[in-house]
Design a protein around this nucleic acid. Structure first.
Lengths: 204, 204
DNA sequence: TTCATGCTTGACACTCAGTGACACGAGGGG
DNA sequence: CCCCTCGTGTCACTGAGTGTCAAGCATGAA
């Protein structure tokens, strides 16, 4: 079915849905960056995107969600990257690559991503939600590390600690990148951060 | 003034204020543990403590705040402990003591604290707020570590990374302690966690 | 004792987040 | 042409959180 469509598996309704979601995200980021998180109401965002408040909540669970979803893909990226070649590498290299793809996603659209990251880090409500996402990423990474773990030590703390250290690195890099307005090089910062934690990652 | 009072510097009004705060915390923890976080309204908590909703918000900023404030003192404890003798010890030992005092505060009132921790870790809204607190603790610890840092490397990532690793250890221990219903020994878990990160902490 | 002062509280009204219910219209298939 | 479904808007409602104001109560001075 749909023989002429460029995306055979994507129906018309799905594309329409994606369109509305993009419109809402666009309107939200625009308004939030302009007026600050607290002073913008959801009614404003919805009106600016040309839909009703009720429709906004059919796409996003909360005002925080619009912003944080924008970075949510990074979690899946990291896990996929980690799952890919973990067995062949020392943990520090595998985790370094995982963090790298997440930061690369930022650096790619650095104009847009930088403003979003700065907004998140400066807004307590957004920061809290973002940290919650990171906690899920950590669980995912830990699970992935456990999969490739030597048998007999399934209950030790290493996977969770290693995942936590990697995300600590990610967080430190993200803060520095944000504070420098994108001036500092993410790759260099990642190298610095992983130079600190590598002795612990590869000793386990 | 107040020659017979046990706390000469504490006025009557302050003690009354503390009393109301305790009453609210008590009522909140009771109700939240019983009925779950979402189904309890602030009106209920306030009524249960014998005050009005408006008064609740004069003591706590939100429903999350009542619960999370209960553990907020740990941050100051950790920083104080770290500030105390950092210069004389390797970072792993100093940070280990800092994490230890925080966990000890939990283990002391294990009955009460365990239920609060489990409530926090299982409730997304509370978990998010708790992680925000942890982020502040990390900044504090990093600042404290920077103070005792060799000159010439003020801008490197080590302090932030070291603080992050210590809190990663704290978090892992807290989760295991919570998941085991308090059965696992916090001290032993801390030792395990710090055995993982010590190579990184003391190499910097 | 009496009055002035300052702090805490309750009552009320309001905005905004978030949800449930329902009706309407467009597109797709019979 | 009809029906069925899905997305949306409207409306109404609960609950979080805040501003305002007046009343109550403690303290301290006269």
């Amino acid at each position: 079915m749909c023989p002429v469509s460029s995306r055979p598996e994507v129906t018309m309704a799905q594309r329409k849905r994606q369109l509305v979601a993009d419109e809402l995200t666009e309107a939200a980021l625009q308004l939030l960056a302009l007026k600050g998180f607290d002073t913008v109401t959801i009614d404003e965002i919805a009106a600016s995107a040309g839909v009703s408040k009720r429709t906004f909540f059919r796409y996003f669970a909360s005002k925080e969600d619009v912003v944080v979803q924008f970075l949510a893909g990074m979690g899946a990226d990291m896990r996929a990257q980690l799952a890919d070649r973990t067995a062949e590498e020392p943990p520090s290299a595998a985790l370094r690559r995982a963090v790298w793809v997440a930061m690369a996603a930022c650096a790619d659209h650095s104009d847009r991503a930088l403003r979003v990251v700065q907004l998140i880090l400066r807004t307590p409500a957004l920061h809290a939600r973002f940290l919650e996402h990171q906690a899920r990423w950590r669980d995912d990474l830990a699970e992935e590390l456990t999969r490739h773990r030597a048998p007999g030590r399934e209950d030790d703390l290493y996977p969770r600690m290693a995942a936590g250290m990697a995300l600590t690195a990610f967080d430190a890099v993200l803060h520095r990148w944000s504070d420098s307005d994108g001036a500092e090089d993410p790759a260099g910062l990642i190298d610095q951060a992983f130079a600190v934690i590598a002795p612990a990652l590869d000793a386990g």
